[in-house]
């Protein structure tokens, strides 16, 4: 090993940071190396003088302490004035932002699916239709004349819808026909008994 390496070991030994193994190596080297012995001697001389340098003291430590104490007391007073908000209040903005994001995510995931969007719109329109129907019923119940006009309009619109239909082509279930026949028979019996056949 070169002397530069041992010079570093000398420095470490002066600080009490040298391992016993390295110390042994250093001592062996120093026995044979005059330059390193001189190096160590000079460093020790310098550090002996360093320890003799006058210790610097703060000129007005008591005043400095007083000033510091005042500043710390002010810090404490400010802490009490601006008391930290409770966790709930501290988290409120974050919670609000989180809730908003959840709502947006839900809308995108659930309500904004193309396939389901129309159904939801229908549901919405049905709900609004129900509201409208209730409002209309209330209005018609409160105004007789308007009720009549409305009924006429309804009947006209029905006639308009069915005028082009060929009713002959309509098929009916068997029991429907039988029921109709039965009803006709019953009506005939009733009219015969009451002598109202001409009137019908």
């Amino acid at each position: 090993m070169k002397c530069t390496h041992y010079q570093k070991l000398i420095s470490d030994r002066m600080d009490g940071s040298l391992s016993p193994a390295s110390q042994k190596k250093l001592e062996t080297h120093l026995k044979t190396c005059r330059a390193c012995r001189l190096y160590e001697e000079e460093l020790k001389g310098i550090e002996a003088e360093i320890r003799k340098l006058p210790a610097v003291e703060p000129e007005n430590l008591a005043v400095l302490e007083g000033e510091l104490r005042e500043r710390l007391v002010r810090v404490e007073a400010e802490k009490r004035t601006h008391k930290p908000r409770s966790w709930g209040l501290k988290l409120a903005p974050a919670l609000a932002a989180g809730a908003f994001l959840v709502m947006v995510a839900l809308y995108l995931l659930v309500f904004n699916r193309p396939a389901e969007r129309d159904q939801n719109l229908d549901l919405a329109s049905l709900m609004s239709f129900e509201d409208s129907y209730l409002a209309l019923t209330q209005t018609l119940n409160s105004d007789e004349r308007l009720n009549e006009v409305y009924n006429e309009e309804i009947l006209n619109s029905i006639f308009e819808e069915v005028k082009d239909l060929n009713l002959e082509e309509l098929t009916y279930p068997e029991d429907y026909q039988e029921q109709t026949i039965d009803n006709d028979v019953n009506i005939n019996l009733l009219t015969e008994k009451s002598g109202l056949s001409e009137g019908l």
Binding site: E57, P58, N60, L61, E67, L72
Partner: peptide
């Protein structure tokens, strides 16, 4: 306090700076 003052003084070479920086150090520590 005093060792910290001495360290800062060694670094700055100025008593006033050392005193100010010592105070700042203590305030930051608190």
């Amino acid at each position: 306090q005093v060792p910290i003052y001495r360290l800062i003084y060694r670094m700055t070479g100025n008593r006033e700076d050392a005193a100010d920086l010592m105070q700042e150090t203590m305030l930051k520590a608190y």
